[in-house]
Simulated scan of single mutants.
Amino acid sequence: MADQNQPPSQEPASTDGGSPHEALFLVLPYLSVLELLNVARVCTSLRRAVEDDDDILPWLNLVVERPLSRRLSDQRLIGISSRGKGRLKSLILVDCINVTDDGLQLVVSNNPLIAKLHVPGCIRLTPDGIIRAVKTLSDDNNDCRLKSLCISNILGINKQHFHTLCSYLQRAHKLGDTATSNIIDVDICPVCDEVSQVYACPQSSERGKCNRKGCKLCIPRCEECGRCADCKEDVELEEATLCSEVLCSECWLHLPKCNHCNQPYCTKHAYRRQQPQGGSGGGTGWLCEACHVKANEVLEHGDDDD
């Protein structure tokens, strides 16, 4: 008679690499590109699940951000984008410093249905490469679906490049001369007459709305709320020393601070926050990059003394 005190026997887990559980397919559309690539490396069955499902949302709306963006090359971009099999709807590359004009053009040529093309901070892209990509997407032979173009921080864009881009978009969408402002994220600054991101101050007061327009170099403004220096009677601007962005005092107070130096990163640079190690900072909160280096040096010297 079997001992009733013994736990019931358990069958050994299957090691034949069978099909993934059906619930996995419900999760895949919510993963980022980096997470999908990591899932595909776990085992053969998961790799098949990721690669064989062409309708996974990230393959049709490709978003590459940090930390993957710094490692993305033309070859890897072409490989990832090909998983959508020509049905790519969004291509968002943030700070992909290794992507070139040739890589972008090949992806655009193979995916004529792209409606959102965002390449901010892709510093190896040139104005001519951007124009060529937009021209391809707005070709008369295609039903142009490009509804959003983000090219901020692309080096060397001048007014001629800007007008050329606008002309392609206007012709493709049959728009008026000033109707591209909702499509492209840059404009000609009314102060310095250069192509840049142009902002309008959202501050309202008893005297009415400010509405002062200009680029950040011409009109300093808070990186978080967008209020400009002309509203200084209502908003006091100061500099967030960790990332050299301008913040108003109200936003500065509400942002999380470094455990050691009590300075914030703006939301745009929050990825630079470092987690404390070895009990530094009490094990909670975060450290800026400089304080993180100093804390590690202190820990290393402490270990040497021991």
Rank of each mutant, 00 (worst) to 15 (best):
D3Y: 04
D3I: 01
P7V: 00
P8A: 07
P8F: 00
S9V: 00
D16W: 12
G18P: 05
H21W: 08
F25K: 00
F25D: 03
S32L: 02
V39I: 03
C43D: 14
E51N: 13
I56H: 09
L60H: 07
N61R: 14
P67C: 09
R70L: 14
L72F: 05
D74E: 01
S82T: 03
R83S: 02
R83P: 03
S90K: 07
I92F: 03
D95V: 00
C96K: 00
N98W: 09
D102Q: 14
L104C: 02
N110A: 10
N111V: 00
I114H: 02
L117M: 01
P120Q: 01
C122A: 02
I123E: 09
R132A: 15
R132I: 01
A133G: 08
T136Q: 08
D139V: 01
D139P: 06
C144N: 09
K147D: 06
N153T: 07
H163N: 11
K174A: 13
N182Q: 13
V186I: 15
V191S: 09
V191F: 06
C201Y: 06
S204C: 11
K209N: 10
K213C: 12
C215G: 07
C218F: 00
P220I: 00
A229C: 12
D230E: 14
E233M: 13
V235N: 10
L247Y: 08
W252M: 15
N262S: 14
N262I: 03
C266G: 10
R273K: 15
R273T: 11
R273W: 14
Q275C: 08
P276V: 01
G282M: 01
T284C: 12
G285H: 03
W286D: 09
W286N: 08
C288L: 04
H292V: 03
K294V: 08
E300Q: 06
H301R: 12
G302R: 07
G302E: 13
